[in-house]
Amino acid sequence: MANKKRNLYLQCPKFIGCLLFLILNLPTFAQDKPEMADVMRSNGKIYVVVAVCLTILIGLFVYVFALDRKIKKMEKDN
């Protein structure tokens, strides 16, 4: 009986230690996969970035189109 108790006493810390070791290692397992901006994607903030970039792009193209038309007019006048 005393022997069994001693065994449990000896094994429990081992088991807890193993568990602790596993839990502590979890972040390192997660790091095996390279970190990406998954949070930004899941909360939809990425659409804000896309909207901003699209606005700039559309503005740029409107400007270049306006220039194109102006030059076309100048070509006709000449």
Binding site: K33, P34, E35, M36, A37, I46, V49, V50, C53
Partner: peptide, 12 residues
């Protein structure tokens, strides 16, 4: 910005 890209180390 929206489509899936491969997960690469360093570059992320």
């Amino acid at each position: 910005f929206l489509m899936d890209v491969p997960r690469l180390a360093i570059l992320n």
